[in-house]
């Protein structure tokens, strides 16, 4: 479609592009409810798909429900499974709890005894010594290690903070990238391996050797904004909306999700569509009152003496004036001198 017929892609001045975009996304959306089903157990990694994903994007959640990443590796190692496996080991986060066989807590003595699972340790290629060295980094902890048994003594003021400290010990990260509880090595059709992860940490993954920094994909829009900037986030919103719809078999013109993305990122950060975002921060009192929480907006406007310039669509419909859309946008005027000619003719 690109560049094929430029004229047909142009939009006439005054066209209500927002309404067209809303309808073009909304109509297929209604069908998605009926068709979407749960793909439980089909894929090893769960991601949000279909309508729930679209709602998630438009609501601008701080984190997606299932954040995930695709990590591509440098072409020199991408075909060698052993090397890819080595990178994978660096990525997947291993916590103390995942190598534990058993543990016991003594709150009064403020000591915790951990027994590590030998098999799990070898599969992650970790030594008990390494685990102990990591636990020493917890403030106020003194660690003694003997074979697979580790004793941690924690100095805390009271029993409650001792308890939370014990939980922190089990939750402590030993190796890997924080925020990535699970990673999988997968293979592409051409034989190259790549890594998919549950959880997202772009900056953390990029620090690992062997990762192709320009070929990382994350579905966490806010994280993309922090790492790459607002324009990349805007493009991710538009593409995610477009891709989720085409995955379900609906073709939408790219300009519609594109407009949604532009509206959401207009202020330089990501705002949701809806009460707490774009719709709730409109300039016009009437437009806000027409949407949700009518009484609240009117009382606030009364108390603070807000003005309504009646420039938008909703407020003009409300008061029964012509809306400034399409032909309603232009105003006709006549020059004073021309008026004389008209009168003369009569």
């Amino acid at each position: 479609m690109a560049g094929k017929d430029k004229v047909s892609l142009n939009v006439a001045p005054g066209e209500a592009v927002g309404v067209v975009a809303a309808q073009s996304i909304g109509e297929p959306g209604t069908q998605m409810i009926l068709r979407s089903f749960h793909a439980a157990g089909i894929s090893s990694l769960i991601t949000t798909k279909g309508l729930p994903r679209i709602i998630e994007i438009v609501d601008a959640r701080k984190r997606p429900k299932f954040p995930m990443m695709y990590v591509t590796l440098q072409s020199s190692i991408a075909k060698k499974y052993e090397n890819v496996r080595a990178v994978w080991r660096e990525i997947e986060e291993v916590k103390v709890s995942s190598v534990l066989k058993s543990f016991s807590e003594d709150l009064r003595a403020q000591t915790m005894t951990l027994e590590l699972d030998k098999e799990k340790l070898t599969s992650y290629e970790i030594t008990p010594r390494f685990v102990a060295s990591r636990l020493e980094k917890i403030p106020g902890a003194s660690v003694s290690q003997d074979e697979n048994a580790i004793k941690v003594k924690i100095k805390r003021e009271d029993m409650k903070s001792t308890r939370t400290a014990f939980v922190d010990v089990r939750d402590a990260s030993i190796k890997g990238v924080p925020g990535i509880p699970k990673a999988l090595v997968q293979q592409e059709a051409d034989g190259r391996f790549y890594i998919t992860t549950a959880g997202s940490n772009i900056a953390g993954v990029m620090e690992i050797e062997g990762v192709d920094k320009t070929h990382v994909y994350s579905n966490d829009i806010f994280e993309v904004m922090r790492v790459y900037g607002i324009e990349a986030a805007r493009n991710l919103i538009a593409h995610e909306l477009y891709d989720t719809m085409s995955d379900e078999g609906f073709t939408v013109s790219f300009r519609h999700p594109s407009l949604v993305a532009d509206t959401m990122t207009h202020v330089g950060t990501i705002k949701s569509i809806g009460r707490h975002g774009v719709a709730g921060e409109k300039e016009s009192v009437f437009a806000r009152a027409a949407y949700e929480e009518t009484v609240k907006h009117f009382t606030n406007a009364g108390v603070f003496g807000e003005k309504d310039m009646l420039r938008g669509v909703a407020e003009n419909i409300l008061i029964g004036k012509q809306i400034s859309v399409g032909t309603g946008m232009v105003k006709l005027a006549i020059k004073k001198d021309d008026l004389k000619n008209v009168k003369a003719k009569e």
Binding site: Y70, T72, I202, K213, T214, H215, V216, Y217, S218, V224, V227, Y228, G229, E231, A232, N235, L236, H239, D243
Partner: peptide, 12 residues
Amino acid sequence: MAYNYELIPEHE
């Protein structure tokens, strides 16, 4: 799907 890095347009 496009990689995040490829989503950054040229800024000037």
